[in-house]
Amino acid sequence: MTARIPIVDYLVIDDGDPYLVAHEAEDSGALSFTRRNADPVNGTPGFIPRRLETTGTVRAFTVVHRDAPGIEVPYASVIVALDGGGVVRGRLTGTSRHPRNVATIKRVRLTTFVAGVDDHGTEAIAYAFEPEPTGDGDD
């Protein structure tokens, strides 16, 4: 079986369906994906891990046509407010990248893809978002 590793430590891929986990500040409830030394709101210590929902609402997007060398373009990028808390950025996959189409996508769900392979064959697993099925048979 191919070895896999999450592209970032806040993506969990070995516990059933993939999901994101945030550092929740015990005092303010602020959610962070990157490690912090104290509550970003008020500087008090103490965090607990919090599993986040895998569905959310798009609150902004762009479609990138020029990026760093090695990044395939064009691609759509969205800012997603996850249901229940947490705001995250990711690619939008599984749909047309034309801005007129992307602008119509409101509800999305987490998905994953292989972002790279190291010299030992280990796959780096990244997350992205895809349109949430509407329940009209388009799943």
């Binding site: 590793i5 999450p6 592209i7 970032v8 430590d9 806040y10 994906f33 990157t34 490690r35 912090r36 762009t62 990138v64 020029r66 990026d67 760093a68 990044i71 691609y75 990028s77 969205v78 800012i79 950025r89 990711g90 690619r91 972002a115 790279g116 190291d118 780096a124 990244a126 997350y127 992205a128």
Partner: peptide
């Protein structure tokens, strides 16, 4: 601080300034 194994710019969504 995010435990990344590769540069996430462009992979986990758009991070360059114009974007």
């Amino acid at each position: 601080r995010d435990g990344s194994v590769i540069d996430t710019g462009g992979i986990l969504g758009a991070a360059a300034m114009p974007a």
